[in-house]
Design a protein around this nucleic acid. Structure first.
Lengths: 194, 194, 194, 194
DNA sequence: AATGAATGAGGATTCATTCAT
DNA sequence: TATGAATGAATCCTCATTCAT
């Protein structure tokens, strides 16, 4: 009936995560101090340390929670045949994952330099690499490979670069996905032709 | 025969710029301290301040020197007819500019969060916006617009994302440019069809 | 019996204030570094920043605490009739306030240039102006006005300038007050005569 | 006929002194950097060092030039009988000296803390002490002594404290001098009475 | 579950000063 | 008579982190 104990318990914890992600995405990781996060939540810095071992650990926890879908996507795809259909599905699901956690992915994109030598940077890069491997065929022409990669990065860029384009967000997302799928198809056509 | 007087003169200044850009690109702006730059050059921090008013000013000077070609490109393009040929030429020249200053553009890409509220971030964004406007037609279909934008961002991504692709750098660059030009052509085809 | 908890609590804070005021008064604001204050107290510089936001804030807190009596005096006087008796009382009370916080007022006197563009300088000047307005009659002769002002400044000067005069401090203070009261009386006589 | 060589020579030198004094008086000694002085004059910091050995030396040179009249006054007075007439003359001449170099004396007044441990502070204090000794009688009543001192300090305060009083500057100066002379007369009357 | 107090390391920046030219 | 280049020491301040309570 009443909110169970351990739901209350993690209330603060997730409020911290929310505020932290918001600030990390807005201002960057380095420029967001734990003091600022604490102040926004009206708690002490020390309270943050009750819930998270370090600043990096806080970021890690956020990233793990939010990028689970991508990991699942990768795991799933690795068990599928390397067909065009599979690749298209990867792109579709990746689109869902991206738009489901825009703040996090914006953060990753805009803080690459910072994140690089954090533990988290590693896993981010690994995910991107895994996705790349899933999409491109190492034996295909270089142009085809670039097209596949572009399909992937187009989605990243598309999340924020379309702000100067008029239109409904959902429509934009569809357009971005369409362009990406198209690139993929062209890469595949190349492959067949060769 | 002997090194002329005023060559010596600006020697330190440009050595600072070189080292700074290298470190900024490698480690990020925030994580690169002036102490580190100074140590690499075997000068005092104060020496840096003799040549540049602030850390930001140092970055600014680097950016201004290196992104001049892009500004020229934009200025040129704004005086040209908005034909496909012009747009293709923009892409080609942009490719030159990008590969001519990879460190700087890598820096911009990977430090967006940091750079955002530096004076320099503004001009970076303005340049991107200007290029976008030059490439896309506001009245065309959303997909066409996204394709144009993707042509642009594909080049950014292509600079570094192709590290896992085997092959000669110059060849990669050509492939990236080809894909970008292709996207542009497709966007243009859309336009005509409509 | 035991030291209560919250007495300990603000112990460091006020120890900082004490040492800071002493050093500010002795050496001047600029020449007193936070390092020096910290060292005297055997704490870290960062500890100072835990208690006070900035160096200026530290000074502000000291000044606010110690100059409260003067503010009360001004408030009181502004509700009184502008008689000679009131003015005399102002001078008497001001004498109390001044001798009750000699370090602070010495500091103000000897650091005017520095204090001028600190927030605190403003309030200092405002207080002096308010007191001036309370003592002098704008319609009286210039000589009378100068006499009133001199009554005020004589007290400032008298705090430290009488070091070469032999005698008991309390006696000196009485003499200074006497001279000031006298100047005030003369100013008042002028007024009546006119 | 032409400007003699050594007049030209010291042109820069005295321009430096002028600007320095202006800034020292306006902003304080510590807050005025040699860089700022140099910039105002459109010369290099190093140029200042050609003319003056140190920052303190620059201040010293200014002070020596401008306070010569006071030294002469003291020298003169020490050879005169200690009569009221002499003391009055001292006050009159001191008034001339003060108003003849307001910037310098304002500087001394507002930078006492800073100046204290400069060589120059010593000589400033010595001058004040000498003047005090000339005006007050050590055997007179404490009140009489305070009155004499007040006569002196009234003139210092009067230079700047009369800004809120309406009227012509020269008239103000006369009023201040009158009040000071009056205090002196009263002190003398005390003496006679005792 | 959280706080108050503190630390140590490091940040950018400014300053008076020097010296070869 | 000046400059350009540089230094060393110091400044204020911020940060992530710790720990006893």
């Amino acid at each position: 009936m009443a909110t169970p104990h351990h739901a209350r318990r993690s209330d603060t914890r997730s409020r911290i995560q929310d505020v932290a992600l918001k600030l990390f995405a807005e201002q960057g990781y380095e420029k967001t101090s734990l003091r600022e996060i604490a102040e926004r939540l009206d708690v002490t810095k020390a309270a943050l340390y009750y819930h998270f071992k370090t600043k990096e650990d806080l970021l890690l926890s956020i990233s793990e929670d939010l990028s689970a879908p991508v990991d699942e996507l990768i795991a799933w795809a690795q068990g599928q045949p390397r067909t065009l259909a599979t690749k298209q599905e990867v792109l579709r699901r990746y689109s869902d994952a991206l738009w489901g956690a825009t703040d996090l992915f914006r953060f990753f994109q805009e803080n690459q330099a910072t994140v690089r030598d954090l533990a988290i940077g590693e896993s981010f890069r690994e995910r991107i690499t895994a996705l790349s491997e899933l999409l491109k065929e190492p034996d295909s022409s270089m142009t085809a490979q670039v097209r596949s990669l572009t399909a992937l990065f187009a989605m990243h860029a598309g999340m924020h670069a379309t702000q100067n384009v008029e239109g409904d967000p959902e429509e934009k997302r569809a357009a971005v996905l369409e362009v990406a799928l198209d690139l993929l198809a062209q890469a595949d056509a190349d492959l067949v032709t060769n």
